[in-house]
Design a protein around this nucleic acid. Structure first.
Ligand code: SF4
Ligand code: SF4
Lengths: 134, 134
DNA sequence: CTCAAATCGGACTTAAACAGTCGTATATAG
DNA sequence: CTATATACGACTGTTTAAGTCCGATTTGAG
């Protein structure tokens, strides 16, 4: 419960690796996969999503790979999570899927208190940037 | 990802209900189950765990039920979660299950940065008490 | 031009966690 | 005694995450 998915962890490791390259050099998925023992197919999809979200840029074809697209200081962990998962991490179902998603929504007495916890969680993920991981 | 389990939500709702009773009155699981539309069997087990953890006290037999055991201001959300789940919410597997639990532990470059995020998450759950939910 | 190296993207299978249910035992007020 | 309530474990079904597979596309290099 309240655990980062492997996808996100792999994404963070990969991003750190790419960001640590001097001068925007291109890194291939295989290179990262080998170095960290991450399943290639899985990592590939993570990188594709990060690419689609504009966090990294992809270079197709021979001698292709990935390079950073943004200043590491501008990339928050929450942005990375959203890029990979497609959603923002939320603590309660109704916060992301709406009132209809929860049977007890109407009589639920903990919605508003949980909102405060949620705000703190969000801050936790926003307060760290890629620059602090490298 | 990063979502509270239903058990915890049900537990919070139940605790809020019990805590809102004036003068440590006894409340039955059925009463709560009916009022909030929570599956009885599931709620029962949650209350049993809270009882075992000493957050509430159980009264068996006819006219039995549950009542608060502690000052609501002394019951943190993190305590409630631990009572119900048996574990503390952690962001990464290796933090709870040890180094051996993760294949990439040895080469993982994000362990220590994530520790800081973890600390913030913990604060989020500790900073709210049952008193603030009632 | 051809080929190999790389990203792209969806479908699929497997494994684990979660939500919910069932059955039975135990305690106790009246 | 008996109805009411908690106690506890085993079980099933659903959902989500992890990982795999296959084919398509792009493109630098020979
Ligand atoms: S309504 Fe209450 S119980 Fe349902 S998801 Fe939102 S917070 Fe959780
Ligand atoms: S070692 Fe790294 S990847 Fe493995 S669980 Fe810990 S943080 Fe996540």
């Amino acid at each position: 419960m309240v655990r980062l998915s492997k996808r996100v962890e792999y994404g963070l490791i990969a991003l750190r690796h790419i960001a640590s390259q001097r001068g925007a050099e291109i890194v291939t998925a295989k290179e990262i996969s080998d170095k960290y023992g991450i399943p290639f197919d899985l990592l590939a999809k993570v990188l594709q999503r990060l690419s689609k979200a504009g966090v990294i840029v992809s270079h197709q074809g021979v001698r292709g790979g990935y390079s950073l697209a943004l200043d590491p200081r501008a990339v928050q962990v929450s942005t990375i999570i959203h890029a990979i998962e497609g959603t923002t991490p939320v603590i309660a179902q109704c916060m992301s899927d709406g009132p209809a998603s929860c049977e007890v929504f109407d009589v639920c007495t903990i919605k508003s208190p949980l909102t405060k916890v949620q705000a703190n969680i969000e801050r936790a993920f926003m307060s760290m940037t890629l620059a602090e991981i490298v």
